[in-house]
């Protein structure tokens, strides 16, 4: 080997190990986090030069896909159970799991002035349908169910339930007007810190178990520089400001 090359080689290896080169990360994103994540990913790509490929969907489906070899490197789940479960099954990078957002539940209607700020509309019961995400599948559905039960209106509204398979579909049922009322994620109806349309009641967090949304690097993402960078970016001020702007707690 040329003596100069010999001297340069460790330097080259240093850079390679440092991985300042742009990498690509495949991210599975919970449906409720769609809008904020699109914004965060755009900023992330601008700031780091890495690329983030986003897939949106239900956390249960992602779990099945990950267990069966899906090429995701990072999971942003809608709950904290699924990432913990994957961790137990040695499908993640140990120590990478953290809570990136705490979801807020909202009772929403497209009709302005329809939902009051105490949720009394649930007791009045003059709506055609009440949409919620399937409590068996979606954390927001479970939180909705708990709130309804704790408010003591379950038997009164149960016959009006329509269930979306995830929170995105639940939003669709309400936004098209097919259900006059529905429990959706605050992030879906909030824009620039305000409810963008219709009327809404932010369900007090005391009525349900907190919706802790955890992120985790999957076994697939080991050694992927972009995956590590994205996790770090999610904890940064810029990302946190965006997350809060959509009404999540942190």
């Amino acid at each position: 080997m040329h003596p100069l090359a010999k001297k340069l080689l460790p330097l080259a290896l240093l850079f390679a190990g440092h991985a300042t080169w742009a990498d690509e990360v495949q991210v599975a994103v919970a449906a409720n986090f769609t809008a904020p994540m699109q914004k965060i990913a755009a900023e992330f790509e601008k700031d780091t030069g890495h690329k983030a490929q986003l897939s949106f969907g239900g956390t249960g489906k992602f779990y099945a896909q990950i267990r069966n070899g899906a090429p995701f490197q990072v999971l942003l789940a809608a709950d904290d159970e699924t990432p913990a479960k994957l961790e137990k099954e040695a499908m993640t990078q140990p120590g990478s799991r953290f809570t990136y957002a705490i979801g807020k539940l909202v009772l929403w209607s497209t009709k302005p002035g329809y939902v009051d700020d105490q949720g009394e509309v649930l007791r009045k019961g003059d709506f055609n349908k009440l949409a919620l995400a399937n409590p068996k599948l979606a954390p927001y559905g479970l939180a909705a169910m708990e709130s309804i039960t704790r408010l003591g209106v379950l038997s009164a509204v149960e016959s009006k339930f329509v269930q979306g398979e995830n929170i995105a579909q639940t939003y669709q049922f309400v936004s098209t007007g097919n259900a006059e009322l529905g429990f959706v994620a605050l992030s879906q109806v909030m824009k620039d810190g305000r409810i963008a349309s219709g009327s809404a009641w932010i369900v007090p967090a005391s009525l349900h178990t907190p919706i802790r949304q955890d992120a985790v690097v999957l076994a697939n993402g080991k050694g992927n520089a972009a995956a590590g960078a994205l996790m770090k970016y999610l904890k940064g001020d810029k990302a946190r400001a965006i997350i809060k702007g959509y009404g999540y707690d942190l």
């Binding site: 249960g60 489906k61 949409a131 399937n134 339930f161 329509v162 269930q163 398979e165």
Partner: peptide, 22 residues
């Protein structure tokens, strides 16, 4: 459909729910 028992919860949707619920 809205996944309502005896109204709109057909077999294909039920299978999907089982898979999603692991």
């Amino acid at each position: 459909g809205g996944n309502i028992p005896d109204q709109t919860r057909v077999v294909s949707v039920q299978i999907y729910d089982h898979v999603e619920a692991m």
